[in-house]
Design a protein around this nucleic acid. Structure first.
Lengths: 217, 217
DNA sequence: CAGTTAACGCACTAACCAGTTACTTCTTTT
DNA sequence: AAAAGAAGTAACTGGTTAGTGCGTTAACTG
């Protein structure tokens, strides 16, 4: 009566764990949406891979689209958060930009789901992302960061003036994103394995060089 | 046999016209696949919009995937063919590259289906494109063209040496492709209408500038 | 013009799929 | 210890979807 049901105090052998189940669903759904897209993913498959009952998905996320929206928002917040952790404001302007180019490339490389999720969201004309104010806010921070790097660089005379930070941001993403999201068709079109170790190294060098040439004073 | 069956020579009032039906199916399917992706497109919808019977799709293209493969191949051949018609070999190296950057941008802008079809194909790990030898051959021509432009430019002293034509090609595509395929999420993230007339003009200028800086001697 | 071929269409099916109903089991609260 | 509520499950539903069987009709051939 006083607690002798549980012989090992301090341990919680909970069979039921809402947070853990939720996390398993999110993880499984991210992989599934990334692999098949929003339309191609199957709720039953997600439930199975999450080792959760399908009913739980509807319990926690209301609908398939609700689940997708949650995952998409988390994905954006994750990359924006990782960018903030680079502390680019502490580096000199040129080094800061190089670090951002390298980070963006490596993030896409390590998190290819991000690319597919964004593609899927654009196929749906960004209807889910539209609703997210927090993603907008965290993106604004990134643009401001690049903006201030450019300003510092111009003042120090190491970067040229008149560059639109949004265009630069888009281009930094573009040169990595395109290469990686189209790695399958690209490997056929260009008749070389774009994902081979030396091909990847060659590409990141080319991208850093490209961005540096854009901003050079 | 003498031609008197048809009172109006040069006109074919055929009720049954295999070629026309096939063409209508292809056109409708391209739009549908572009809008919904391979997984999201519905064969019934394609048939309806093509004003053809669903049975005809299976008669001409065997399966939904067979239809997709035909459309994808046609799409690639169309852009590769249009590129050849630019006759870049007749222009001086710098003008040739600028023309290619501008063409690529405008092609994507006028044929947004191309972007979505390629995205969809990459979601399926290029399994359909793999089978197409003719697409490989026509892509090779493009790389060779850029390669020879670079060579001419180096000889003339107007372009720098040591640029990998494949990396350049990829980058020319990337700076336009990324901007346009992600126009929906991009317009939210960057809090501006990326498809506004002046935004588009600003972007193509930025892209030309970017490519010119990459190749500058 | 009879016979053959190819274009076309109706109506069906077997599988699939997002979402739900109705229920059981576990945990916490009082 | 009993009530309350949350976590979890299985089986089902109504609608959808890729793909087909089979019959019909138009166009071409000899």
């Amino acid at each position: 009566m006083t607690g002798e049901q549980n012989e090992k105090p301090g341990r919680k052998p909970r069979v039921r764990d809402a947070e853990a189940t939720k996390a398993r669903i999110l993880e499984a759904a991210k992989k599934e949406f990334a692999k098949k897209g929003l339309g191609g993913a199957r709720v039953d498959d997600i439930a199975e891979k999450a080792k959760a009952n399908k009913r739980m998905i509807y319990h926690y996320f209301e609908s398939k689209e609700g689940l997708f929206q949650t995952i998409l928002e988390e994905a954006y917040l994750d990359i924006r958060n990782a960018e903030q952790k680079l502390h680019l404001e502490d580096l000199d302007p040129r080094a800061a930009l190089e670090k951002l180019v390298r980070f963006t490339w490596e993030y896409y490389l390590k998190n290819p789901e991000f690319l597919t999720l964004v593609n899927s969201e654009n196929l749906h004309r960004a209807k889910h992302l539209k609703k997210s104010e927090i993603v907008k806010a965290s993106s604004r921070k990134l643009v401001n960061m690049v903006s201030s790097i450019l300003e510092r660089g111009v003042k120090a005379g190491v970067l040229r003036d008149g560059i639109d930070p949004v265009q630069l941001n888009i281009t930094i993403a573009a040169v990595g994103y395109y290469y990686l999201t189209n790695r399958f068709t690209g490997s056929i079109i260009y008749e070389r394995d774009l994902m081979a170790k030396d091909a990847l190294e060659q590409r990141i060098q080319f991208n850093i060089d490209t961005i540096m040439r854009i901003v050079a004073a």
